[in-house]
Simulated assay, not measured.
Amino acid sequence: MKYEQLSSYELWGLIQSADQEAFAYIFTTNSDDIFKYGQKFTTDCELIEDVIQDIFVRLWELKNTLVIHSSIRFYLFSTFRRELVRRLKINQKHQLLEDYHSSVTWEDSFQEILIENQITQESSMRISSALDNLSTRQKEAIYLKYMQDMSYEEISSLMGIKVPSLYNLVLKGLKSMKQFLTSSDYTAKVILLFGIFV
Rank of each mutant, 00 (worst) to 15 (best):
Val85Glu: 11
Phe110Tyr: 08
Ile72Pro: 10
Val85Trp: 05
Val57Lys: 00
Thr42Lys: 01
Gln95Arg: 13
Phe41Glu: 04
Glu83Pro: 00
Asn64Ile: 04
Thr43Lys: 09
Leu97Asn: 08
Val51Ser: 06
Ile90Ser: 09
Ser31Asn: 12
Leu62Trp: 07
Lys93Ile: 12
Arg58Met: 07
Gln92Thr: 09
Asn91Gly: 10
Thr42Asn: 04
Gln111Ala: 10
Glu61Asp: 11
Phe80Glu: 01
Lys89Gln: 14
Ile113Gly: 01
Arg58Glu: 10
Ile34Val: 12
Ser78Met: 12
Glu98Met: 10
Tyr100Pro: 12
Leu47Arg: 07
Glu46Cys: 11
Gln111Trp: 08
Leu88Met: 10
Phe77Lys: 06
Glu112Cys: 03
Asp44Glu: 11
Arg82Glu: 13
Val51Arg: 01
Gln92Phe: 13
Thr79Ala: 10
Lys36Asp: 05
Glu46Leu: 14
Asp99Trp: 04
Leu114Met: 14
Arg73Gln: 13
Ile34Ser: 01
Asp108Glu: 14
Arg58Pro: 02
Asp50Leu: 05
Asp54Asn: 11
Gly38His: 10
Val67Arg: 09
Phe77Trp: 01
Leu76Gln: 06
Cys45Met: 12
Phe56Asn: 02
Thr79Glu: 07
Leu84Phe: 00
Ser103Ile: 08
Asp99Glu: 13
His69Glu: 13
Asp44Met: 06
Ile90Tyr: 09
Val67Tyr: 07
Ser103Leu: 09
Ile52Ala: 05
Asp44Arg: 07
Ile113Thr: 09
His94Pro: 02
Thr105Ile: 08
Val57Ile: 15
Ile48Met: 02
Leu88Lys: 01
His94Thr: 15
Ser78Gly: 01
Thr29Arg: 08
Val51Asn: 01
Arg86Asn: 14
Val85Pro: 12
Glu49Leu: 05
Leu97Asp: 06
Arg82Phe: 07
Ile52Lys: 09
Ile90Leu: 13
Val67Asp: 14
Ile72Met: 03
Leu96Asn: 13
Glu107Asn: 14
Ala22Tyr: 00
Asp44Gln: 10
Glu46Asp: 14
Arg81Ser: 10
Ser71Ala: 03
Asn30Trp: 09
Glu112Gly: 05
Ile48Asn: 05
Tyr37Asn: 03
Asn91Phe: 06
Lys63Arg: 15
Glu61Gln: 14
Asn91Lys: 14
Leu66Thr: 05
Thr79Val: 12
Asp50Gly: 01
Arg87Phe: 11
Lys93Cys: 11
Phe110Gly: 00
Asn64Glu: 14
Phe80Tyr: 07
Phe110Pro: 00
Ala22Gln: 02
Leu47Ala: 05
Thr79Met: 06
Glu61Val: 03
Asn30Lys: 05
Tyr75Ala: 07
Leu96Trp: 08
Ser71His: 01
Ser78Ala: 10
His69Pro: 05
Glu21Ile: 08
Leu66Glu: 04
Thr105Cys: 05
Ala22Ile: 04
